[in-house]
């Protein structure tokens, strides 16, 4: 929560300073909280190499980024989910033409408390847990304890991705939803903190947040497949089943400074930063 307040303050600061620097060499990047650190790292390195250019990065969630791209208040939107058709229609109305660039990949880790004996689950079991059909740890081989489901808020691309790809198994007609009793927390860090102190909780977040205070669960596509650990290697070779692309959206084909920055992000150097921030490069 502090992070959010800080981001708002930062946002204000940036708006003020950006207004001062308008029309010169500044671009605004906004969106996915998952990608904030990555965007920040790109921006810092880029600005080191191109002094005079100014790049401001703020978070707020994928939806926030895309809606500010649509309303014209940022130049690049970071998003951890595809833009929705509704959003494209709205953008067209306002004369904005969203252009999609895949900038990196992210494996979503499912995490539990280190003391939890459950260490591998199939996708079906995961869907069962998060939709509330499986409500006790003993049903998946753990202790007799109620499962506490932790999820991100609905403004998070991670939330949307997890719902569509794990709960609904990529089926557009599926009506599966997160269990109504799922706790919606406002940041990945909040999920990490709650997991660290709650032995009966389960949650998910981008691989970058994995630490020793949580235990990541090995995931298998079905009960005949092998259980796979979320590592960069397993995401790259496609073995880890919950992995998503991370996007940059611009208004039309990127041009000028925006193109320079996007090219930098996709360059070998930019993709090394991707690895350094615990994501997976978009290109091998």
């Amino acid at each position: 929560m502090f992070k959010k307040t800080l981001l708002i303050l930062l946002g204000l600061l940036i708006t003020v300073s950006a207004q001062a620097a308008k029309n010169s060499n500044s671009i605004q990047i906004k969106g996915s909280d998952t990608m904030v650190n990555l965007g920040q790292a790109w921006a810092e390195k880029y600005m080191e190499e191109h002094s005079g250019d100014f790049i401001a990065v703020t978070g707020g969630g994928s939806g926030t980024g895309l809606s500010s791209l649509i309303s014209g208040t940022c130049d690049i939107a970071m998003s951890s989910r595809n833009i929705k058709e509704k959003e494209i229609a709205l953008a067209k109305q306002k004369g904005i033409d969203p252009y999609e660039i895949t900038a990196a990949l992210d494996g979503l880790a499912v995490v539990v408390h280190p003391a939890n004996p459950v260490s591998s689950l199939t996708l079906d079991q995961l869907a069962g847990i998060f939709t509330g059909k499986i409500s006790n740890w003993k049903e998946v081989g753990g202790v007799d304890q109620k499962i506490v489901i932790l999820s991100r808020e609905v403004n998070s691309g991670t939330h949307v991705y997890f719902k569509e790809h794990v709960l609904r198994k990529n089926d557009p007609n599926s009506k599966e939803e997160f269990a109504p009793g799922a706790l919606l927390l406002s940041s990945s860090q909040a999920i990490a903190d709650e997991i660290a102190q709650n032995p009966s909780a389960i949650g998910y977040y981008g691989m970058g947040y994995i630490s020793a205070k949580q235990k990541q669960v090995n995931i298998a596509k079905d009960d005949k497949s092998v259980y796979v650990n979320p590592t960069i290697e397993n995401v790259l070779n496609g073995k880890y089943p919950i992995c998503r692309p991370l996007f940059l959206y611009t208004n039309g084909q990127p041009q000028g400074l925006i193109k320079k920055f996007v090219d930098y992000a996709l360059s070998k150097e930019g993709q090394e930063i991707v690895i350094a921030t615990d994501f997976v490069p978009a290109k091998k």
């Binding site: 939806g63 926030t64 809606s67 709205l90 808020e153 609905v154 403004n155 009793g181 919606l184």
Partner: peptide, 22 residues
């Protein structure tokens, strides 16, 4: 003794995502 979601928290948590006009 159970988790709840209040009216105020709903507005605050979701306003950022909601596409204007949706």
């Amino acid at each position: 003794l159970v988790p709840v979601r209040t009216l105020t928290a709903t507005i605050a948590a979701e306003m950022g995502e909601a596409v204007v006009g949706s």
